[in-house]
Computed example of a mutant assay.
Amino acid sequence: MIRHLEASWPHEGCGVILRSGAGEGNSWRVVPLPNASPTPRVAYAFAPEAWLQVCLDADTRQEAVVSVFHSHVDAPAVFSSEDRRQAAPSGIALLPQVSYIVVAIRGGRAASASQSVWSTGGFQTVPLPLADFRFEKPV
């Protein structure tokens, strides 16, 4: 996820995280998606055909979308008012069981991250340590 978001800079990157299995048999899969927004430096959008393919593949593989992720370019890792409007038009969450991860990318490198989840009619946001997403040692 982090590599995709950093490689997308200076545009916002985006994608989803899928999970299959339950309990200790969980397996996770990161699916980077192209940003189809007409203003990719300040917004992200999934192309309808790419989103449909993710959903069809997830169904075939018995996976569930657990998180939508995207980056903010040279801006804070906060779930913005626009992010909230897109995720919950008219105050109704489109994917109430899905979390939203935002990663701030500054100068092409991940700087901070947050996660927002739908709870009691609104989104609650908490910071995420970037170390949780890095599996390789920094050089």
Rank of each mutant, 00 (worst) to 15 (best):
V42K: 10
N35L: 02
A43Q: 14
S20T: 11
S37L: 10
A45T: 10
W28Q: 06
L33I: 10
L52M: 05
D59M: 14
N26Q: 13
A43D: 15
R29S: 08
V42I: 15
R41A: 14
E24I: 08
G13Q: 12
H11I: 00
V31D: 01
A50R: 09
V16W: 03
V31N: 03
V16Q: 04
G25Y: 00
H11F: 11
L56G: 00
S8T: 09
G21K: 02
G15K: 05
R41P: 00
T60W: 08
L33H: 07
P32A: 08
A47T: 02
E49K: 05
G15L: 04
W51D: 12
P40G: 11
C55V: 10
A58V: 07
A58C: 10
P40W: 06
V42S: 13
A47S: 13
E12Y: 10
A22M: 09
V30L: 03
D57W: 07
V42Q: 09
S20F: 00
E49H: 11
R29K: 08
V30A: 08
I17Q: 08
A45D: 14
R19S: 05
V42W: 06
V54A: 03
S37W: 07
A45M: 14
W9P: 09
A58H: 02
T60Y: 09
S8A: 15
T39Q: 12
A43P: 09
P48N: 02
D59S: 12
T39A: 14
P32F: 02
S37C: 12
Q53I: 06
S27F: 00
V54T: 04
S27Y: 01
S27W: 04
A58Q: 04
C14E: 03
R41N: 10
G23W: 01
L18I: 03
L18Y: 01
S37V: 14
P48Q: 11
Y44H: 15
L56T: 08
V16G: 08
P48A: 14
R41Q: 13
D57S: 11
V30H: 01
W51M: 15
A36K: 03
S37K: 13
T60H: 12
Q53N: 13
T60E: 15
G13W: 08
C55A: 12
S8K: 02
N26D: 06
R41H: 13
L56F: 00
A36R: 02
N35T: 02
W51Y: 13
Q53K: 11
L52K: 08
P48D: 13
G25M: 04
S20H: 00
N26K: 11
A45E: 14
G13K: 07
A47D: 14
G13D: 07
P34S: 14
L18H: 03
S37T: 12
E24V: 07
L33D: 07
W9Y: 15
F46A: 02
P32S: 05
G21E: 02
A43R: 15
G25K: 10
R19E: 14
T60A: 15
F46H: 02
S8M: 06
N35C: 05
C14W: 01
V30M: 03
A47C: 06
P40C: 06
P38N: 12
P38Y: 01
N35G: 06
V54R: 01
Y44G: 11
R29A: 10
L33Y: 10
A43Y: 14
P40T: 04
V30C: 10
C14T: 15
V42P: 01
A50W: 00
Y44S: 15
A36G: 09
